[in-house]
């Protein structure tokens, strides 16, 4: 394994705050929130990041890997600056998420799960995001866009380009 990773001082404080939410003998409860923290810090959850979380919790690293590899939200590989996730579950499928995905794929020149060569965009599909009345929906990083159409995709991408 590569060099061990450690959280920055600021993140360590947040980690301590998270650990405080659970009784001391059940530190492992913090594994998901800490993995979120790791992903914020490093963009994805590498084995080194898992080992870092395991050290904070005081458990075997494979027990963190069990969690990090289970949940789809944890990136196992580096991702683009912007992660675009098109909901593709039934209600969004009924309202045309297919054309949204296809349009994004064509505009960005990448397929499902791929990242653009410049490292700016990663394209994904997501399961139901619980905004079915406003579909198709598109999760861009932490922000949910609703009633998305190919035209709106262009607007969203333009906005992201502006930074």
């Amino acid at each position: 394994m590569a060099t061990p990773l450690e959280f920055t001082e600021a993140t360590r404080e947040r980690a301590a705050e998270i650990l405080d939410r659970y009784p001391d003998e059940y530190r492992k409860s913090a594994v998901v929130p800490l993995l979120h923290l790791a992903q914020e810090e490093w963009g994805y959850v590498s084995p080194e990041a898992m080992a870092c979380v395991a050290r904070l919790i005081g458990c075997s690293p494979v027990k963190v890997a069990e969690i990090a590899t289970f949940y789809p939200m944890f990136n196992r590989e580096p991702v683009g600056e912007h992660v675009l996730a098109v909901c593709h579950t039934l209600p969004c499928a009924l309202t045309g998420c297919g054309s949204v995905f296809d349009h994004l794929s064509e505009k960005l020149g990448i397929g499902l799960g791929e990242t653009t060569a410049d490292g700016r965009f990663t394209l994904r599909k997501s399961e139901c995001l619980a905004a079915c009345d406003r579909g198709p929906v598109l999760l861009v990083n932490r922000r949910l866009h609703t009633h998305v159409s190919p035209a709106k995709v262009d607007e969203i991408l333009a906005e992201l380009d502006k930074g």
């Binding site: 084995p47 075997s60 690293p61 494979v62 027990k63 289970f70 789809p72």
Partner: peptide, 22 residues
Amino acid sequence: GTSELGVVQMGSKSEIATFEDV
């Protein structure tokens, strides 16, 4: 009590695994 083995991935992709260099 050594916990070297875990189940990684999810659903039908689940596999028994060790961690990296452990």
